[in-house]
Write a protein that binds this DNA or RNA. Structure first.
Lengths: 173, 173
DNA sequence: CAGTAATTTCAATAAAGACTGAAATAACAG
DNA sequence: CTGTTATTTCAGTCTTTATTGAAATTACTG
């Protein structure tokens, strides 16, 4: 397996972006590779193509499966596991957002609620803190609630909604 | 300067979240500290409170200023620089989103466009790649365009829009 | 059941990233 | 100017995170 120039460019960039968003570079590269690959790949092919250790690929694939964006597919006449990623980009985006919401936003909500409670109990000395954290909490809650609504839209409507863009202003009056 | 339990809890959590999103832990902690502080703080106070080196604080503050969410404020009768962060959480969110769009989304758009072009030029052999990257490009463009629209809404309308949530479904029919 | 292939685990190592402190520079006061 | 205070820079060090490869485990095949 040999990367074409285009694929290589994309894979490298995707890895770079991943690492800026707190995702391990190699994991992001594997994801990119699977995304553009016309066929499912097995772990050895991935390792060879990206020049990383087989064991690293194994762990990374597991991680990606944990995120729900990579899955094993059986390939006829092949004994090794083969892997693909979500082909529908919208679905992929939503799955990632769901997961990050669960992993980062929800715990943040919990902590913020606790902090606001505790700050209120502490009385005057923490009045300012309570106010600030309360505002932050509200923001996170609002965004979370909004996402929940959007998430529940049937796909075509969601896409329509996002493409609508320019009509937003009018719509809201 | 001594952190209260509530503040400490918040600062630590914020630092943790930061690092999951590709933002240096200390930088995120400083931001959190400034956010809840009733008054602007100088670099020495920050260093002492968070137990990090003065020089580290200096670099981190510079980074935060680069992101546009921390600024210097003059304090009467004080010679040292004092720092605050955006008090309005919505403004803060938008500033961060703008910046990440500029730093990560825009370059990604550029690369994707180039890749799609090159893949098309390469003919049949890259047909599949062209299709995949084209779909991804479309997604990123759609999201970017939508954000631009939302970003342009006057603040109150933006908040109203996000709080509306539940009416979204009906609205779109 | 062997025997072989595939995968995973994990201790050791390497690489990347973050932090410090000493020294340089800049800003100010008298 | 000169002395003092404040800030920044950056080479070296430390910490964390990522990666490897050998060994163990698991999954198949005949």
């Amino acid at each position: 397996m040999q990367l074409t120039p285009v694929t290589q460019k994309f894979v490298l960039h995707w890895g770079e972006m991943g690492s800026r968003w707190g995702i391990n570079r190699t994991i992001a590269q594997i994801h990119a590779l699977l995304y553009v690959s016309p066929e499912p790949l097995n772990a050895d092919q991935i390792a060879e193509t990206l020049s990383v250790a087989r064991s690293n690929v194994s762990m990374s694939l597991r991680e990606l499966q944990g995120w729900g964006i990579v899955q094993v597919v059986p390939v006829l006449g092949e004994r090794k596991d083969h892997f693909t990623t979500q082909q529908d980009v919208w679905e992929m985006l939503l799955v990632v957002l769901d997961e990050r919401k669960k992993r980062e936003m929800d715990p943040t909500l919990t902590i913020l609620r606790e902090c606001v409670m505790e700050a209120k109990e502490a009385g005057d000395s923490e009045k300012h803190t309570a106010k600030r954290l309360g505002e932050l909490l509200q923001l996170v809650e609002t965004c979370g609630g909004w996402y929940g609504q959007v998430r529940a839209l049937p796909r075509p409507m969601l896409v329509r909604f996002l493409k609508m863009g320019s009509k937003l202003g009018k719509l809201l009056r």
